[in-house]
Structure formats: C-alpha cells, structure tokens
Amino acid sequence: MKTFNYLRATDVDVALQRIAVEPGARFLGGGTNLVDLMREGIEAPETLIDITRLPLDGIEELPDGGLRIGALVRNSDLAAHPVVRGRYPFLSQAILLGATGQIRNMATVGGNLLQRTRCLYFYDEASACNKREPGAGCAAREGFNRGNAVLGTSDACVATHPSDMAVALAAIDAVVEVRSSRGTRHIPLTEFHLLPGTTPHLESQLESDELITAVELPPLPVAAHSYYRKVRDRASYAFALVSVAAALDFGADGRIADVRLALGGVATKPWRARTAEQLLLGAAASEDSFATAAAAELAAAVPLPGNAFKIDLACRTVVAVLRRLTTERSGS
C-alpha cells in the first residue's frame, strides 16, 4: 500500500476545513472497503483523515416520529436498534444480510453508502474499467458478468451498487445530510447515487470536500410491515444477485393503500421501483398484480449474456416478498 499522512480528527469543523484545502485527502471511517481498495492500489489518497472519533455516532428519535442516524453509527448498532427493528424492520434485515458480524461492527453508515462496486473487473487492475480509469473500456461486458447490473446501466458501465442497507434506505425515502465548510445540504437517498452514464467514475453527489454527517429516516407507518429478501450464491456472506426491499399496507377495501419497493443486486444504484409502486397502489393484492408490476419495473432491463437470469429472478423475488407481506397482514 502506498503510504499516506494520517490525521485523527476530533472536531467536525476542523476536519472540514482541512479537507477543503487538501483535495488529495479522504475521510476514513471503518475502513472495511477503503483499506482494501488502497491495498489493491485502486485508491491512493495522500492523506487519510480518521473521523471515527467524531461525535457522529448517535441514533436519535425525531419529534415527528422519524429517526436521525449519525454517519458513524456502526452497521451492527443500527441493525440492533429497537426503533429500527420495530418501525423499519427491512432496514435491520438488509444490514444483517450484508457482510459479517466482524465487518458490521467496523463499517459505518456513511461508509456503507460510499462503498464501491465489487465488479470483478473494477478490482482487477489488469482489466479495462471505465470506473477505475475513465475511457479505458469495460471488460465486464464481454466477461464474466453474472454479478453485474441490468437496470440503470450504460455502454460505459454495468457495475452494481453493492449495498443492501442503501436499498432499504431508498425504499424509506431516507435523506442524507452532508456538510462542508461551505454549509450543510440534504440529499434524498434516491438521488444521492448517480447513474453511470458516460462518467461511471462519478458515483455520488458528494463533493470531495463534503462529509456525510447523518442519515434521516422520515416517519413511515407502512415500513412497520416490511421485509427484505436477498438472493445470492451462498446462504451467508455474499453479495446479492437480486434483493428486494418492500413495505406494504392495505386500506379498508382490501386494496393496496401504501407500498414501497426497491431492488438491489440488479442495478447500478440502489433502485427505487417507482414504476411498480405506481401500478401496485390501489390494486388488489394478487399474484397477477404483483407479477404485472414487477414485469413493468424490469421492462427497462438490458441483459448481458451472464446476467439475463436476473430479470426473471427479480420478478419472482418481488412477487414472493409481496406475497409474504400480504399473508402476514391478512394473518394479523
């Protein structure tokens, strides 16, 4: 690993002032992705500003019933929080289905959002990758692309966003709070990550001098009836081939009164399935309506030879999760 300067931040404002004048610096959280990328030579910051001792590790209930999650809350602590378990169960499930106990104890909420793709060709320096080296080409298109995306892709890039947590946050309409020495802004999670387009090396709206300080969850009654399912090659500790975050509620007439749906493992960013949601809202809860909505969402999919199976798998997983939530509701 290339050497770097190490600074330990003890004050948010000082950290922000420092990064504003040092463009080659990066913030260091749990390090579970960044340290690995630095060891592989894919990232080579000149300075690391360690932010893990900043007071951004609290979880706070908001007066409106929402939740404010400090950016440095460890993944395991967020997943175990009673309010998350009770009011946003699919967020807890999504986190617990990612990584391992050890890594969840290290990884932070902010870092989880900023983790980089595990596309094999992004990690392999001998291969062409537009994300790693703009203009180099994309070896995944002609390569082993079983794990790659079918939604939100471009000619330049088919890499998936690897986070499970972010998929549930997309369904929740979470808001990312970011700060710099220029001020504070709030970015909806669904807009935080960028589609690759012709610039796959640009992955989020976060500017180089900005720090994620918190993620806020709005109050969302439907989220109490939610579920996250992850389909993968191993039963544990593997990235998703397909994942589905869904929340469902019914009106007095038995029709779908509220629904949230997001997909992971199939898209270049945490994928809010708004097309499917619109079709489901007001519909009867039936296998037909679930299947129609899933198919409509996946209609835009662009498959590669190795990952075409994901389209059908995503549709079936959406139907299975919605069926489960329907059964739970009618049973309660």
Partner: peptide, 13 residues
C-alpha cells in the same frame, strides 16, 4: 469487547 477483522484495521485507528 467487540469482534473485528484486524487485517482491514489500520493500527493507528
């Protein structure tokens, strides 16, 4: 008291 993987941990942290 919490388990971590020491290979991804920079000692300075």
């Amino acid at each position: 008291g919490r388990r971590i993987v020491s290979c991804l941990a920079l000692a300075v942290q």
